[in-house]
Design a protein around this nucleic acid. Structure first.
Length: 962
RNA sequence: GCAGGGAUGGCGGAGCUUGGUCAAACGCGCCAGGCUUAGGACCUGGUGCCUUAGGGCUGCGAGAGUUCAAAUCUCUCUCCCUGCACCA
């Protein structure tokens, strides 16, 4: 049994001793391979490790291909998740502490200290580093840094300085989810249940109170229905207030006045009892009609403004509320339900958007086409008394239907599609000051901050953005994209799309660890924005460290010189106080490593990190330093399930490695699915890998027993398989499809080796060559095992320092492989046939005495191929070499193919004699396999009645029972 | 809603770019046999349906089409997954 822990430590030490992973520029071509540096707010789990080991494997592959490869690593500590983790610890969050204790096995005293975000980050950084080392990643640790190191901050400051000069930073306002208690923006990691606040825009249309100067701000998603308004709804048992915005007074619910106070400058001018409001009338700003205010049972005071305009013809809730009021005897004026949108003009049909299962065949029989809201309810076999869910469903359906097919039948935009009219009307209303744009949290459930406060929308002003929407910038990126290798290639359209999609992006935040934003030092640079070109820093950070360079010395002109080749070295030396040689060293190092890069990350980062990485490189660097490869790798499932804390299956990878060893874990995570797919990590795979590894190691004993000298048919076969394998595996490794490569290198090899032995292969030289190549090709994926295997095969060098095998095309021999296939197929055919014929009554009680394998005569292949080519029997008969044949024999043979002529393909050149010799040589094998006497004969010499059935690639079989 | 990706056997998952060699790789599961005190592991064979000689039939989300020939090309439909931003 392999002791993985012991073996892996041994080889990790050997690599360290040989300094394999501490490269410096040399005469070879350099290659900088990076993975998105770990975010250290929790321990690394198997999902993270998948990306890292995949990157390591690719780096190892490139190294064996002859590149001088650098794989560095650092840690990401910027931003709020670390902060919010620390806050949860200081709040004594029982759930989190339990996870840290039980899943992550963090010691008690460390947990306590984790209320300090810096402690927490450095704890997990150390833990992650240890995990990466145990995983055997070939990382140059001399270059380690983290994103809040003062040296690195200088680099980020330089980046933002230059980006501002290029005009790529802009200021503006934008809505964010906001916690009023903590006073900061909240993302999903700040909320209970990790819910992402969904911010949506609504319009509050201003209906003027006829008896005062105040307005009813009616919140709506559908301003175009303003033409169909019959009344206004409020919640009669809620508290309303008079809120003043910019000198204008509005009636709104108390809750709304609070939520909107972070979007507008609101002055409260006192309460307004709902019963007073119910006496009022208001003017529809679009139609100038006077409408009453009524109580609506469904109004939620905490959504929008708590004031809603009622469009009973198109809104099932409005319709239901009015009808219920009528029934309850509420004193109300006569009103006409006005249909303002028609779907049939737009090729729609009322009810088309409803789930057919709900309809029960009622579609088409619409009783009230003039009141779509009612029509929908009727189709669902409901009416104004419908329960909330039914009303909700009807609302969604009508909304969808009308947005899709609706055409305006009233107003300024009569005849226009509803979707278009909505935009136009909204703009008109805002322009004429008849509406306000408001934002709401649109999630179905209220979003609650971890501190317990309900999250609202705040408009942040003077916020700095990176303007990824800049036209010229986008244009440059579009030009750069075709020359960037994207793996998997399938993602190229996505990247193209994202280039168009990416727009303004906040560049700074009020909270979190990180680099102060140079143009507003009370804020920090947003955490994705400080990590777009950080790979540059790896190329010279170790030089800075070794020479004790202080952060203050890292002036912008230093980075200008090293990265952008601007300025001259003497003046940089003078202003920074650094030696010329150090600066030159940094510049040379950057130039050398940055010409060939490959950046790897999980597929979840495509639409932020990856795309920002490309954008920023293109704008900040000379073309020769632009990205060369980006590799996105699919996520990881654990035993078929997404890793998630709530399921409790986030497995810290160190625990997995301690249990199984790194190589089996690496193999199971990176080699069992193709690049873009989710890998399903299963312990079963681990076990089967371990067994195959044991088998491979044991082949050495088998080798030692081999004594063949002459090359035989089966040896050529193994050579052929080997070289074909090398060629295929290389192709797959080049495009980072490790799974396909592994199928070739590992799974197929094991079965080929078994076949080789089973078929009597016994040439030590051939088998050793095969195994050595397997060992080398496994080295990128299971580096420790590969070393062990390589050594066991008698080598004293390190596999990691060997070159990747080159295929020898001349050793690929289709003919030999084909013959082997024929032998194997024949054996299977015989087996099947024996089974079938054993059931014949005539054979009852008998045993197979002998099996005759009868090989076709040489002319049969020629005649067959000629038929495939000529398509006519008549022309085949006249072929030179065939024209002298017995016509009857020839046509009888060809006749069997005529009805399938279209599907036939030529049989490759196999010499009948060669096939015969191979079958003769395989007699022992077949005998053993079939457990009976086997004779091989030529068709011409056979006395069997079945002899003439022999085909060129399919010998005739005659089973003799006795 | 918009965008991208997908739908293959009991399951996972190839193949579909370049239509035929595809009843469909590889793996798992299942069945039978061997080995074993037993189990596990391992080895052999089988695993759509039918079949008394290597054969036939049905089949790759649904439907239609192109073709001598389609899992593979075209069109329509249904369903599923992912993302939609200031958040790592």
């Amino acid at each position: 049994m392999i002791n993985y822990q012991e073996m892996e430590r041994r080889w990790q030490n050997a690599w360290a001793d040989a300094k394999v992973f501490e490269p410096e520029p040399n005469e070879k071509e350099g290659f900088l391979v990076t993975f998105a540096f770990p975010y250290v707010n929790s321990p690394m789990h198997a999902g993270h490790m998948k990306t890292y080991s995949l990157t390591d494997s690719f780096a190892r592959y490139l190294r064996m291909k002859g590149y001088n490869v650098l794989l560095p690593a650092g840690f990401h500590m910027t931003g709020t998740p670390i902060l919010s983790m620390a806050k949860r610890i200081s709040r004594n969050d029982a759930e989190l502490i339990k996870d840290f204790r039980e899943i992550y096995q963090v010691p008690e005293d460390s947990i306590r200290k984790m209320s300090d975000p810096l402690y927490l980050a450095s704890y997990f950084a150390q833990d992650t580093e240890a995990g990466l080392k145990e995983g055997g990643l070939g990382i140059d640790w001399r270059r380690k840094f983290n994103s809040i190191d003062p040296h690195f901050s200088k680099f980020v400051e330089w980046q933002f300085l230059r980006m501002k000069e290029k005009g790529l930073l802009t200021q503006g306002t934008h809505p964010v989810g906001w916690c009023t208690n903590e006073g900061n923006a909240v993302g999903s990691h700040d909320t209970k249940g990790d819910a992402q606040p969904k911010i949506e825009e609504m319009l509050a249309i201003k209906f003027k109170d006829t008896s005062s100067n105040a307005y009813f701000p009616c919140a709506t998603y559908r301003p175009e229905t303003v033409y169909g308004v019959t009344n206004i709804f409020i919640k009669e048992d809620s508290t309303y207030v008079i809120a003043e915005i910019d000198g204008t007074q509005y009636y709104m619910s108390r809750e709304a006045s609070f939520a909107l106070s972070h979007q507008f400058d609101i002055q409260l001018k006192g309460e307004m009892p709902a019963r007073e409001l119910l006496k009022k009338k208001a003017i529809n700003p679009m139609t100038k009609e006077e409408v009453p205010v009524l109580p609506g049972f469904f109004i939620k005071p905490d959504v929008g403004t708590g004031v809603v305009m009622s469009v009973p013809a198109h809104a099932p809730f409005d319709y239901a509320a009015l009808e219920r009021l009528k029934v309850s005897g509420y004193q109300m004026p006569h009103m006409q339900y006005k249909k303002v949108i028609d779907v049939e003009q737009g090729a729609g049909a009322i009810g088309k958007s409803l789930d057919p299962a709900l309809l029960n065949g009622r579609r088409g029989s619409v009783a009230h086409p003039d009141i779509p809201a009612l029509a929908y309810l009727e189709l669902m076999n409901a009416d104004s008394n419908a329960v909330y869910d039914i009303l909700e469903m009807a609302t969604k359906a009508i909304y969808k239907e009308e947005a899709h097919f609706g055409v305006m039948t009233t107003g300024n935009y009569t005849g226009k599609p509803e979707a278009e009219a909505r935009e136009l009307i909204a703009n008109d209303l805002i322009k004429s000051n008849d509406a306000l744009k408001i934002f709401i949290i649109a999630n179905d459930q209220p979003i609650i901050c971890r501190c317990g406060t309900r999250v609202i929308v705040k408009i942040v002003s003077d916020q700095w953005f990176i303007n990824y929407g800049d036209k010229n910038w986008k244009e440059q990126v579009r030009k750069a994209l075709p020359s960037i290798g994207i793996y998997p290639g399938k993602l190229r359209p996505t990247f193209g799309y994202l280039v168009d999609w990416l727009d303004l992006r906040a560049a700074e935040r009020a909270q979190g660890l990180g680099t102060p934003f140079p143009f507003n030092p009370t804020h920090i640079i947003e955490s994705l924005s400080d990590s777009t070109i950080y790979m540059i820093f790896y190329t010279f950070v170790h030089i800075l460290n070794a020479n004790n360079i202080t952060p203050e010395q890292l002036k912008p002109e230093f980075f200008d010189y090293v990265i952008s080749s601007k300025g001259n070295i003497d003046s940089v030396a003078a202003s920074t106080g650094m030696d010329n040689s150090i600066i030159k060293n940094c510049k040379d190092s950057f130039d050398y490593w940055y010409t060939n890069t490959s950046n790897h990350s999980g597929s979840d980062l495509i639409n932020n990190h990856f795309i920002m990485y490309i954008f920023t490189h293109v704008i900040m660097l000379e073309e020769k330093y632009w990205p060369k490869k980006v590799v996105s790798c699919g996520l990881l499932l654990y035993e078929g399930q997404k890793m998630s804390k709530s399921i409790g299956n986030t497995i810290p990878v160190r625990i997995l490695i301690a249990k199984h060893g790194s190589d089996p874990v690496r193999f199971s995570s990176i080699a069992t699915a193709d690049l873009e797919s989710e890998t399903n990590f299963e312990e079963d795979t681990i076990n089967s890998v371990k067994q195959k590894n044991e088998f491979l190691l044991s082949t050495v004993d088998m080798l030692n027993r081999m004594n063949g000298v002459e090359l035989e048919h089966i040896d050529y076969w193994l050579y052929s398989k080997l070289n074909r394998k090398i060629e295929n595996a290389t192709k797959q490794m080049d495009i980072v499809e490790l799974r396909n490569a592994v199928t070739e290198i590992y799974y197929n090899s094991v079965s080929e080796l078994k076949w080789y032995v089973e078929r009597g292969g016994h040439n030590q030289v051939v088998a050793r060559e095969f195994l050595e190549n397997i060992a080398l090709m496994l080295a990128p994926i299971m580096p420790h095992f590969a070393e062990e295997f390589w050594k066991t095969l008698g080598n004293t060098t390190l596999a990691v320092q060997q070159l990747w095998p080159k295929p020898n095309a001349e050793m690929v021999d289709e003919n030999v492989e084909l013959i082997e296939d024929i032998i194997s197929n024949t054996s299977e055919d015989i087996n099947n046939t024996m089974m079938l014929t054993s059931r014949i009554p005539a054979n009852k009680g008998k045993k197979v005495k002998e099996i005759k394998i009868i090989l076709a005569e040489e002319w049969k292949r020629a005649a067959f191929n000629s038929l495939v080519e000529k398509r006519e029997m008549g022309r085949v008969i006249k072929e030179p070499g065939l024209e002298s044949m017995d016509k009857e024999k020839l046509t009888k043979y060809l006749n069997q193919f005529m009805k399938k002529l279209a599907t036939l393909r030529k049989i490759p050149e196999i010499k009948a004699e060669e096939l015969y010799a191979s079958f003769i040589g395989s007699r022992d094998y077949l005998k053993k396999k079939l457990g009976t006497e086997v004779t091989v004969e030529r068709e011409s010499a056979s006395k069997s009645a079945r002899a003439d059935r022999a085909l060129p690639d399919k010998p005739s079989i005659d089973i003799i029972w006795a």
